[in-house]
């Protein structure tokens, strides 16, 4: 999908020229994870990984990214594999799985409908056919639509590095706008979604001006599991209102142990609004975003906890 960031001008000393041509770069297609890692090491941060290309090419065209090399990983089999349910109920999603495949995957729709529902709000069918879930996470836009649902599902990510494979919580993966724990020498291999707690109900809300082709002004994912009328498990995650997708433990704490009545939900929504640290940009002011966080969190909780 197109980079969810405002384009910067490409000013030169004498003024501004609008470039149509991509700047020159070396194109390399990796066929295996070790090869991709070797190439990354060779270019030491001056290369970019290409999967669907729906963010990378836009960023290169607008001058936001000027890599020396583009390493195409589309054909690296170990990064694909689609959606698999492991023994024990954990779901593994290959990083190269397209957004369209996630949207339509029968297993995901049955086990964790939150994710395909969120993905269906992204960009357009054409872009979803091309863009990958790994790409959306690695691009690390604060407004990335796959992030809040995955965080609400306690997802983990599997990274390939030259030292081997390691797994980390997705919550630790995002380190800033456009920045992740991958650094310049690792490849995202898969997203792991633990078996959801029994009775988990989850909802995704996205606020934007348009119904499609829209970056979230605010997005919200909530997940709640109740036992005998009391909330035992709660997740409240916000998108587009902080440098990274943001889990709000304070809001979750206000829910757990409570029945989820209107006042509980209002309090949690207020906590979420307080936790949001939105910026003011062309998409909305900080105050407005905070206001919308309160509304969307409350509405999402009403749907799943009421």
């Amino acid at each position: 999908m197109e980079a969810c960031a405002t384009h910067g001008p490409s000013a030169s000393a004498g003024g501004r020229v609008f470039r149509a041509a991509l700047p020159p770069f070396e194109y390399l297609a990796a066929t295996s994870v070790p090869e991709a890692l070797r190439l990354l090491a060779k270019f030491r941060g001056r290369a970019v990984l290409l999967a669907g290309g729906t963010d990378v090419l836009v960023q290169m065209r607008t001058g936001k990214r000027v890599p020396e090399a583009v390493i195409d990983i589309k054909r690296v089999a170990a990064l694909g594999g689609g959606v698999k349910v492991e023994r024990g109920g954990r779901i593994a999603i290959g990083a190269l799985t397209t957004l369209a495949d996630i949207e339509h995957d029968a297993k995901l729709r049955r086990l964790v409908p939150l994710l395909p529902e969120a993905v269906a709000t992204m960009a357009s069918p054409q872009v979803r056919n091309r863009g990958t879930i790994g790409g959306n996470l690695c691009n690390a836009a604060p407004s990335a639509d796959t992030a809040p649902p995955l965080l609400a599902l306690d997802a983990l990510v599997r990274l390939h590095t030259r030292k081997g494979v390691r797994t980390m919580p997705l919550a630790e993966f995002f380190t800033g706008p456009g920045r992740t724990a991958l650094g310049t020498d690792a490849v995202l291999g898969a997203i792991l979604v633990p078996k959801p707690p029994r009775g988990l109900r989850a909802a995704f809300r996205k606020h934007g001006v348009r119904e499609a082709m829209e970056c979230a002004v605010v997005s919200v994912a909530v997940a709640v599991a109740k036992e005998r009328g009391t909330i035992r498990h709660a997740r409240v995650v916000l998108g587009a209102v902080a440098p990274t997708p943001l889990r709000v433990p304070a809001a979750e704490a206000l829910l757990v142990g409570h029945p989820g009545g209107p006042l509980d939900l209002l309090a949690a929504a207020g906590e979420a609004a307080d936790a949001a640290r939105p910026i003011t940009d062309v998409r909305g002011s900080s105050d407005y975003r905070r206001d919308v966080v309160r509304t969307l969190v409350r509405r999402a909780l009403e749907e799943v906890a009421g």
Binding site: C4, H7, E211, V282
Partner: peptide
């Protein structure tokens, strides 16, 4: 004097779905 949303991403022309 500068255009801050010089793309269809942030210039909100409506689509069929809207």
């Amino acid at each position: 004097g500068r255009v801050g949303n010089a793309s269809f991403l942030d210039y909100k022309m409506l689509n069929a779905a809207d």
